[in-house]
Design a protein around this nucleic acid. Sequence first.
DNA 1: CCTTGACCCTCACGTTGCGGGAGGCGGGAG
DNA 2: CTCCCGCCTCCCGCAACGTGAGGGTCAAGG
Lengths: 252, 252
Amino acid sequence: MAYTVGQVAKAAGVTVRTLHHYDEIGLLSPSGRSGAGYRRYDDADLERLQLIRYYRELGFPLEEIAAILDDPASDPAEHLRRQHELLTARIGKLQEMVAAIEIAMEARKMNIPLTPEERFEVFGDFDPDAHAEEAERRWGGTEAYRESARRTAGYSKDDWLRNKAENEDWGRRFAEVMASGAPADSPAAMDLAEEHRQLISRWFYDCSYEIHTGLADMYVGDPRFTEYFEKIRPGMAAYLAEAIHANAISRA
Amino acid sequence: MAYTVGQVAKAAGVTVRTLHHYDEIGLLSPSGRSGAGYRRYDDADLERLQLIRYYRELGFPLEEIAAILDDPASDPAEHLRRQHELLTARIGKLQEMVAAIEIAMEARKMNIPLTPEERFEVFGDFDPDAHAEEAERRWGGTEAYRESARRTAGYSKDDWLRNKAENEDWGRRFAEVMASGAPADSPAAMDLAEEHRQLISRWFYDCSYEIHTGLADMYVGDPRFTEYFEKIRPGMAAYLAEAIHANAISRA
DNA sequence: CCTTGACCCTCACGTTGCGGGAGGCGGGAG
DNA sequence: CTCCCGCCTCCCGCAACGTGAGGGTCAAGG
């Protein structure tokens, strides 16, 4: 079972040039040559090529692939497990990036202008650990955010505008309740807190009472969000947070 | 608010050389120079750099990034949505690769030697569409597989050996029931079918009756898996499939 | 005032993983 | 015997920087 470069290239989905390159750098040298100098690959070569393509697909540099493949203390099952790990790690990293983008969307939704520095804080640095922490601390898990992701992906510009309008309407009415002098744990305030929760559930993700109180804490804790509410009416962030907590307790 | 290359580099998490490069190719030229020829970046430059980093992180070539950024008919929200889409698409692709690897693991678990060509069929070609279809058709969704992924990632060599032993023990007992002449819908056969399901649930993923019958169909439909059972005892694939179906119906 | 050290500048060549072409043999079909 | 396709070996080019070399600059401290 000997194959020519062309045959191997076709089977493996790579170009002939690639095989030449692998030969040049000694990563995959055909097991033999024909009289005229034609490369002749056998089944073992094909298997090796397959492994090379595995690792390449995962973004490994060729040099490292050579090191891995030429390490005698490694079996195929081990390879599979390693690849599996690597892939899931990558997926994790990408999901963190998705989370970061979603935070950006959340901020935009509220018309919070991030300063350049803040923007770099949130997006510029994709250091895995730092971001996992941020996301975890902020959102206590990413389930809700992935849900949000799926939904918002399908939203049109009109949808966003309608969402904004609803938000603003809610803000106006909530400010009115505040102005009326009603305490944060009054039925009127709590009802609007509940409405706020349902607004989020309808537009973004299933917002449980637990998540909602988490958001409330963020509204008072994170100046970027605090400011947003303070601009609607001074004291609103704290007032809303209290109303959300009261609402969550009374409905639990 | 003017910054030097070093400051910008630090803030954005890139090297000075990168900024020089961006300047060279005209992707990001500082808004001005000092008397001594020092590059001076302003806030607008920072914002642009941030966008560049966004797209870079997503794997866009610099030239395309320039085209996107210099397109006047594009707003930031649109950018975010596009990035979001791209990221989720990537995640999808990676999940397909994970699924492919998991199929390989399933095959190895059963000691099915794939021929080089078959291996290329399964792994060598990561054409998105082809694989999405394969995975969907085979597994009807990837939830179970992701579950399996999480679990098997932590398995040691010993775990795999124990799993193999349990499998072989089950195979022997199932072959005995077949040899006894009991029909596939007899209690003895159905009990072992149920045991098979629980074996999978314990080792890999929560195997519902629905998934289990799906596997059964695969055992008779895919020659690679059929052969595995046929080698234990001729006729076993079909017999097992029938037993699994009978078991699923009776317990539903 | 002058030195020191941390910056900044502009070349300019090196790297990775190939793409693509030139110029020249080899080999099976007609 | 001739064709054309496939193979061969150079070799140049690409992105997106890394990594010096060789030299100017700026703010602080002696």
